[in-house]
């Protein structure tokens, strides 16, 4: 077999992900995490009726990130991730997981050069792309608003 035939043969015969079961797992775990977020929002709203919605969402995010980090620290989040895949990656708790896990992993190389400098090896792209995109949107918005 030459290279082309081989890579075709490999991609044809390689075991595939089980679409239905992984999608179902992602669906219910992801949905559940969002429901937990909603219940936190509703609780805070009931307790502090005068606070504006945006601030309540900020508190909700804070609590969700706390939960994600805690589960990562206890060694539970990677088990959820193994089962749920996208269901636990995409919610904000997955972002917390991708910050906490390298921090824990690389602390053996020291606090400064391990923990602190490698904290964003996985989540870095999220911050960079998010900020770059938002600045671009802001500049476009400014230019449009001039006319």
């Amino acid at each position: 077999m030459n290279k082309k035939e081989y890579s075709e043969y490999v991609s044809k015969t390689a075991p595939k992900s089980k679409h239905l079961s992984t999608m179902f797992a992602a669906f219910w775990v992801g949905g559940l995490i969002c429901c937990i977020g909603q219940s936190i929002f509703d609780t805070i709203q009931a307790l502090l009726p005068l606070v504006p919605d945006d601030d309540i969402w900020a508190i909700t995010t804070l609590v969700m990130i706390f939960l994600g980090s805690t589960l990562t620290a206890l060694g539970v989040y990677d088990k959820i991730g193994r089962y749920a895949g996208g269901g636990s990656i995409i919610p904000i708790t997955g972002f917390a997981n991708s910050v906490t896990s390298p921090a824990m992993e690389y602390k053996r190389e020291g606090i400064i050069f391990g923990l602190m400098s490698k904290m964003f090896v996985i989540a870095g792209p999220i911050i960079v792309s998010g900020i770059a995109a938002s600045v671009a949107v802001g500049i476009c918005y400014y230019i449009v608003s001039l006319f």
């Binding site: 797992a25 992602a26 669906f27 775990v29 949905g31 969002c34 749920a84 269901g87 990656i89 995409i90």
Partner: peptide
């Protein structure tokens, strides 16, 4: 909430 959140995560799983 469950359906929309789950749906988004499911889309991500299809990508994965």
């Amino acid at each position: 909430v469950f359906a929309v959140g789950g749906g988004i995560c499911m889309l991500g799983q299809i990508l994965i």
